[in-house]
């Protein structure tokens, strides 16, 4: 079977609801299938990349630490919507995880190049 491209779009804040963790679990499950995996942070999802998260204060697991483990799963195509960072006063240099900043055209190309897309 020729490898497929699965793109995951993280659009939710990390701790206010369970969607961010749910999407990350999907990504980690997909990673073991030897396909091409893209992970894109858009909209409020870019808050998942904020530095200095201390979710122990609310008895939650550190999502940014889990994201930091993505290279161990060979998930290396990690992108972030540049506009969403800018709108929230975040910069690509000050993120907890390495992510390549993307503009609208690059995001459109990521989607168009995917076999399936999951957004949460």
């Amino acid at each position: 079977m020729t490898p497929k491209t699965l793109t995951f779009i993280a659009r939710s804040t990390p701790y206010g609801n369970g969607r961010a963790k749910a999407l990350l679990d999907m990504v980690l499950s997909a990673a073991v299938f030897d396909q091409t995996i893209n992970l894109l942070f858009m909209d409020d999802g870019v808050w998942q990349l904020a530095r200095n998260q201390q979710p122990a204060t609310i008895d939650a697991k550190d999502l940014s630490a889990a994201l930091g483990a993505l290279p161990l799963y060979d998930v290396n195509n990690v992108y972030v919507e540049a506009r969403a960072l800018d709108e929230r006063g975040l910069t690509p240099q000050a993120l907890a995880v390495d992510a390549k900043p993307c503009d609208d055209t690059e995001i459109a190309a990521l989607i168009a190049g995917s076999d399936q897309v999951f957004a949460l």
């Binding site: 499950s29 073991v32 299938f33 076999d115 399936q116 999951f118």
Partner: peptide, 16 residues
């Protein structure tokens, strides 16, 4: 969750 990934890889379309 592997069952979701597996199904996505072998389906023509996935709708969420």
């Amino acid at each position: 969750l592997g069952q979701l990934v597996d199904a996505s890889l072998s389906s023509d379309r996935v709708v969420s």
